[in-house]
């Protein structure tokens, strides 16, 4: 049985560490905030200019001046700070954010990522995604393993790239892969979702990958 969106988010939450500053993308990555272990101090960064993002407001307490990068109303915390977009991307580009968790259309075995544009369709823009993958210390992708029946883990991306050699870890509904983005050891399947086999994953994956189940903890601190 493949993982649900919540199970994928819970798996991604295992990449969090005490004291981390983290940027979460829209969609499944946003759900990761529901799985931060009790007692762990994690500050969420919102690239529109906020550190220490709180939960959604109670009804009637929404503030139009307080939104996240998905334009959703949110709240502040005692740890919150606000800053300009230039300062925000200074944090991101400057390598001060520990972890970025985001969605993807395609990931290649060398760590290339495509998640902003499908040629021929109306293009919405990359927003902050290119800056995040270029600047954040560790990049984790959470996505469905296939789009309908087409593999999304490829030998090479055929959509326009968001970043070149930027992805460290991929969590899909079928399993977890590490990527050595500096080259070297390539892509490795390290975990399977419950009831999923490596053979099933091979059949649904275009990328070349090694299998090293249980032998390597991706989340070793």
């Amino acid at each position: 049985m493949a993982w649900t969106r919540e199970q994928m988010a819970a798996r991604a939450a295992k990449e969090l560490r005490d004291g981390f500053y983290v940027n979460l993308g829209i969609g499944i990555p946003t759900l990761v905030s529901n799985f931060i272990p009790a007692g762990m101090r994690v500050q969420l960064q919102s690239e529109n200019g906020m550190l220490g993002m709180g939960p959604f407001p109670f009804e009637g307490e929404e503030d139009p001046d307080l939104i996240n990068a998905g334009k959703q109303t949110i709240t502040e915390l005692p740890t919150t700070s606000y800053f300009s977009s230039a300062d925000s991307f200074g944090m991101i580009r400057g390598g001060h954010i520990d972890l970025s968790i985001l969605g993807a259309m395609q990931v290649a075995q060398n760590g290339d990522l495509a998640n902003w544009m499908i040629p021929g369709k109306m293009v919405k823009g990359m927003g902050g995604a290119m800056d995040l993958v270029a600047g954040v210390k560790r990049v984790v992708v959470v996505m469905e393993h296939t789009a309908k029946d087409d593999p999304k883990l490829l030998k090479a991306c055929n959509l326009p790239l968001t970043g070149q050699g930027v992805v460290d870890l991929v969590i899909t509904d079928l399993g977890v892969f590490t990527i050595d983005k500096k080259g070297g050891t390539g892509m490795t399947l390290i975990e399977l979702a419950d009831g999923v086999t490596a053979e099933e994953i091979k059949a649904k994956t275009d990328a070349d990958f090694k299998v090293a189940l249980g032998s390597k903890q991706s989340n070793a601190a």
Binding site: S85, M130, T162, G163, Q164
Partner: peptide
């Protein structure tokens, strides 16, 4: 890219005609 846009504006206002960033390399 959003951070490049923000920095282009910051640079323009600060009298900096150009800068180098790793955002977007290879895209």
């Amino acid at each position: 890219p959003q951070g490049t846009l923000a920095e282009r504006i910051r640079a323009g206002g600060a009298g900096i005609p150009a800068f180098f960033t790793k955002t977007g390399v290879g895209t």
